[in-house]
Design a protein around this nucleic acid. Structure first.
Length: 480
RNA sequence: GCCCCGAUGGUGUAGUGGCCUAUCAUGCAGCCCUGUCGAGGCUGCGACCCGGGUUCAAAUCCCGGUCGGGGCGCCA
């Protein structure tokens, strides 16, 4: 059994470079990590009172800010007794500012033969102030040893977020985006933003949320697809966007939301293989950076998992290149695993289980039938399956059974684009908003869209996408 | 859109027709304690989702509603 004290010792994030603010001279993390050089110095810190243990004329407060935990020790003899009483009778999670001297903490009693813990520091308080009193009881316990249902947690996400493992997940999310950006910028991609209010579908397939744009009917964008392509057509060469996408599908699963953040790239003079390379290098960079820099966040998540009797997670940097399992081969794997499927069928979740048994990690599924891909996906006329079906340059990236990415080389020849539409019984006249961008010369290009939360589910071992999205929007949830 | 499941104090739970003025944990409130550290001790507080029905008797069975969960389809 691992107790709270284990992770109370560590800092939650590196705040060594943070400047003092009007409310504190130091972060708690700074005192925890630099305590030896601060002993005897007067500091002010501010934080949430995680626990307040009164013992009559002395009082212990476990203070937490966004950078760590520290114990504040209050003695009635050492301060204004009225302030002492006020703080001692305050409620858990109230915000408190205290001023006092840094001191080495008296070591806890340890059992015979147990190693002495490394030195810790505390603040001997001389004055303090309640900044904001917390109401009781808390709707969700921050450190209580009681499981809380996801729905209650999401209703009270601002409190749920105070729990260390939840906090760690969202810090990891920020890291994932940071490392992803780092890598793409290194490969020459530039960040762009596309409009989220659009006049018509930018990529067929899913339902859009309708809205009114003043007096004009409009929709929320389901993908930056078209706009990334227009940017590449315009000569920006390599672009990426991290932004929201909206899909009005009434799905209700552990991996779907109606608003999600999509990590998208598009590059000129590239085909599907080229952008798969970008993707696997980016994921490799993210994983190896987390492995090198952020093990403490993984540890915090694992402390919680252990306390709940769940399996812990390890950051296993995937080997390059990721396996490529062409669609036709995937069909054979499913068939030999006993799945009922024919060439031309979609590979469904239960089929993916069969493939994942052989390829449990990241793997690409390239060369899907053209008939299953949108009209804007590129195909070579001479690339056909054994059964004669036209293959495309569209691909997916899966991790285990879950789809992370959909991407491909795009069709850049406007006449082929229009023929693709006719082949799918669509009228090119209805798609001029898309095809018109291709009439004045277009580079061959390719790209993909990656679900950020799905990637984070893999990294953190979260079983539900709602865990790793701050304020998820699903079929029934629009608040908070 | 389809299929399955669930709802008990603030939170997480026990409970399968009478043993329930409902279990346990956590929490909350109060008291004791001048070095606790998963603090401890004592005393309290607090719940059967809503509406209808069956029955001598319903947290428990039936119907409807509301809310939630899981799976499928579709997708990222």
């Amino acid at each position: 059994m691992i107790h709270n004290q284990v992770f109370l010792r560590q800092t939650m994030r590196d705040s060594s470079q943070w400047e003092p603010t009007s409310y504190r001279t130091h972060t708690i993390g700074q005192i925890v990590s630099e305590g030896a050089s601060l002993v005897g110095e007067e500091v002010s810190v501010a934080g949430y009172a995680e626990t307040i243990r009164g013992r009559g004329a002395i009082c212990f407060i476990m203070l937490r800010d966004g950078t760590g935990h520290i114990q504040a020790f209050l003695k009635k003899d050492n301060m204004n007794p009225e302030i002492f009483d006020l703080i001692q009778s305050s409620t858990r999670e109230s915000t408190v500012q205290v001023t006092g001297l840094v001191a080495q903490k008296r070591p806890p009693k340890v059992a015979e033969g147990e190693p002495m813990p490394s030195p810790e520091y505390e603040i001997n308080v001389t004055s303090g102030e309640i900044l904001a009193e917390a109401a009781t009881p808390l709707p969700v316990g921050i450190i209580d040893d009681v499981k809380i249902g996801l729905d209650i947690r999401l209703d009270n996400r601002h409190l749920d977020l105070r729990r260390s493992h939840v906090n760690a997940m969202f810090q990891l999310r920020s890291k994932v985006l940071q490392y992803g950006r780092e890598h793409l910028i290194k490969e020459g991609f530039m960040e762009m933003n596309s409009p989220k209010i659009i006049a018509s579908a930018s990529e067929g397939g899913t339902n859009l949320f309708p809205m009114m744009y003043f007096d004009t009917p409009a929709f929320l964008s389901q993908s930056p697809q078209l706009y990334k392509q227009l940017a590449v057509l315009g000569g920006l060469e390599r672009v990426f966007e991290i932004g929201p996408a909206f899909r009005a599908e009434k799905h209700d699963t552990y991996r779907h939301l109606n608003e999600f953040i999509s990590f998208d790239i598009e590059g000129a003079w590239m085909n599907d293989e080229d952008v798969m390379g970008v993707q696997e290098r980016m994921i490799h960079h993210i994983w190896s950076s987390v492995y090198e820099n952020d093990q403490s966040l993984i540890d915090v998540i694992n402390e919680y998992k252990v306390s709940q009797g769940e399996n812990t997670i390890t950051v296993e940097v995937p080997e390059l290149p990721f396996p490529r399992i062409p669609y036709s081969e995937a069909i054979e794997i499913v068939k030999s695993g006993g799945g009922e499927i024919e060439w031309g069928d979609d590979i469904e979740s239960h089929h993916c289980d069969l493939i994942a048994a052989k390829y449990p990690g990241f793997h690409f599924l390239p060369r899907w039938p053209m008939s299953m891909k949108p009209f804007y996906i590129y195909h070579n006329k001479n690339e056909k399956s054994d059964s004669g079906g036209q293959l495309s340059r569209g691909f997916d990236l899966n991790y285990g059974r879950d789809e992370m990415t959909s991407g491909g080389q795009r069709e850049h020849r406007v006449d082929v684009l229009e023929q693709n539409l006719r082949d799918m019984d669509l009228n090119p006249e209805d798609f001029t908003f898309y095809t018109d961008g291709f009439r004045y010369g277009a580079p061959p290009h390719a790209g993909w869209g990656l679900g950020v939360a799905r990637l984070l589910m893999v990294l953190t071992g979260a079983g539900n996408v709602r865990e790793v999205v701050l304020f998820p929007r699903d079929r029934t949830r629009v608040t908070p």
